[in-house]
């Protein structure tokens, strides 16, 4: 099927197998290897990208179903040579080891900082909570890191948060 989508600002028109996920489209057809395949079932977050500005598991999105969308991957976070503040903070705080979950962590964090509303650890649902370390941990729990860099990831996000 023919679809068009914009990835990191670049338009693409591609003919895809309806079975192909957005993740496989990015990795196997468009040469964008930043989004990672860790589980292919939405259980690890390594494939996290932004679809129309919202973080999503690219492995669970069929490419045909995101026809017309704007997708941002980790490759699209930096402005030229200038790293996104979160990317710089991840390096500074050693917020990764093997680096395989990192693109997903970064895309997730970028979107998370713009997500309104409470989380599962918010006491008063009526108020938009402060982004405490506890809130960051809960909101970032969809991105597994087997190297165990969580404490550094939380520090990096807390520092880079506006």
């Amino acid at each position: 099927m023919d679809i068009t989508l914009k990835v990191n600002g670049t338009p693409h028109a591609v003919d895809v197998d309806p079975r192909m996920s957005l993740l496989d489209l990015l990795r196997e057809r468009l040469g964008l290897i930043g989004a990672k395949k860790g589980c292919d079932h939405g259980q690890c977050g390594a494939c996290t990208v932004l679809i129309d500005g919202r973080r999503a598991n690219a492995c669970l999105a069929l490419a045909v179903a995101v026809d017309g969308s704007e997708v941002t991957t980790v490759e699209g976070l930096a402005k030229g040579d200038d790293l996104h503040p979160l990317q710089a903070a991840f390096i500074e705080h050693d917020a990764f080891q093997c680096g395989y979950c990192t693109p997903g962590q970064l895309c997730s964090a970028v979107a998370m900082l713009g997500e309104p509303g409470p989380s599962a650890v918010t006491d008063d649902l009526a108020l938009d909570p402060e982004l405490t370390p506890e809130e960051i941990r809960e909101r970032m729990s969809g991105n597994l890191c087997r190297c165990g860099a969580y404490v550094n990831i939380v520090k990096a996000i807390a520092e880079a948060a506006p």
Binding site: G42, R54, R55, A56, N57, L60, A61, S108, M112, A120
Partner: peptide, 16 residues
Amino acid sequence: LARAVLDGASGQVRNM
């Protein structure tokens, strides 16, 4: 209801 939804899955999955 808000709490139940927030207790489910992950931020990414809840977005989808």
